[in-house]
């Protein structure tokens, strides 16, 4: 892998949860993303995916750990100033096609917002750029004059992508951009993101809860459970030979459009509350292979093959 443009080291996020209590939403998360590559991040709801993505672009401060973007450390002392120097090279695409656009702003102004914030763009250039961006995401130029509510969910997602592309970023966090869409829209948006990546050499952190969608988007995949990465590998390795029992269980229960497939029985239990994390492996109480030490000792994420890491005592 070439030098990473984005890297996270030991990221931790604690949220206050009532008097004298904190909720550890993200615990010791590390990964690298190289230019033009995608890291897929999967996990069930509440596993800390969005929190991780938000810390990466500085939307929320990390409690501890380090984020480097394009060689600049943007966490810690003086981080904000360094973040400002790379700000135009990063963007974010949101999940909710309704909430991610200001209902009172025309599409033109929504898409041009990053340009307006940066300043120094002439009126004519701005209009030309908006037209160009709309074309890139497959929307007619006349959309510029309309308001978000006049568009379907899939089209709004395209508008959000156009806005993200406005300043020619090199890295985009996509937080479940297709989760709220129907299958046919989902496929269109996935292809659009892949086309844009090829055209502009974009790097993505692609967050989703659907393992199949992540496979179609990513070069590397990380699986999160209860705030931590439990397995991270290239997509070939992860889907062909998943090592962590949780990854295996997830792959076993994804419904597939094949009436002859006999699905394995569901995993029992639920994700533990982040407020009272059990000792040891967070997955132990649901894990079919758990042993005594799993309930005592927290497994570290360690190398099990080149570029393949898992956090399980048994692998």
């Amino acid at each position: 892998m070439s030098a990473p443009i984005v890297s996270a080291r030991g990221l931790v996020k604690d949220f206050p949860a009532g008097p004298d209590r904190t909720l550890r939403a993200v615990d010791n998360v590390s990964f690298d993303i190289a230019a033009g590559e995608t890291l897929g991040l999967v996990g069930e709801s509440g596993s800390g995916k969005s929190t991780t993505g938000r810390m990466l672009v500085g939307l929320i401060p990390a409690t501890s750990g380090e984020v480097s973007l394009f060689g600049q450390t943007v966490t810690g002392r003086g981080g904000d100033a360094r973040l400002a120097t790379v700000r135009n090279r990063l963007q974010f695409v949101f999940q909710d096609p309704n909430g991610s656009l200001n209902p009172r702003m025309r599409v033109r102004d929504a898409i041009a917002e990053p340009l307006d914030i940066k300043g120094d763009v002439a009126r004519a250039d701005r209009a030309a750029r908006v037209a160009e961006l709309l074309d890139m995401v497959g929307l007619p130029a006349a959309s510029a004059d309309r308001y978000p509510h006049e568009f379907s969910g899939g089209q709004r997602q395209r508008i959000g992508i156009a806005r993200a592309l406005a300043l020619r970023p090199e890295f985009i966090v996509c937080d479940e951009p297709v989760s709220a869409l129907d299958v046919s829209m989902q496929a269109q948006i996935v292809n659009l993101l892949l086309d844009l990546q090829e055209r502009f050499g974009l790097g993505y952190l692609f967050i989703a809860h659907d393992l199949a969608v992540v496979r179609s988007m990513s070069r590397n995949v990380a699986v999160m459970y209860a705030g931590s990465i439990v397995e991270i590998a290239s997509r070939q390795a992860l889907y062909a030979a998943p090592q962590h029992p949780y990854t295996q269980a997830l792959l076993d229960v994804v419904p597939r459009p094949d009436p002859d497939r006999v699905r394995k029985p569901a995993l029992a239990g639920e994700v533990p509350s982040m407020l009272n994390r059990p000792a040891g492996c967070a997955f132990a109480m649901r894990c079919p292979r758990a042993e005594a030490r799993c309930r005592v000792e927290t497994p570290a994420l360690r190398d099990i093959a080149a570029g393949h890491r898992a956090a399980c005592h048994l692998v």
């Binding site: 229960v253 994804v254 419904p255 029985p265 995993l267 029992a268």
Partner: peptide, 10 residues
């Protein structure tokens, strides 16, 4: 979530 979905379908 998928794992809970599987439980409910079962």
């Amino acid at each position: 979530d998928v794992t809970i979905q599987a439980q409910i379908l079962d």
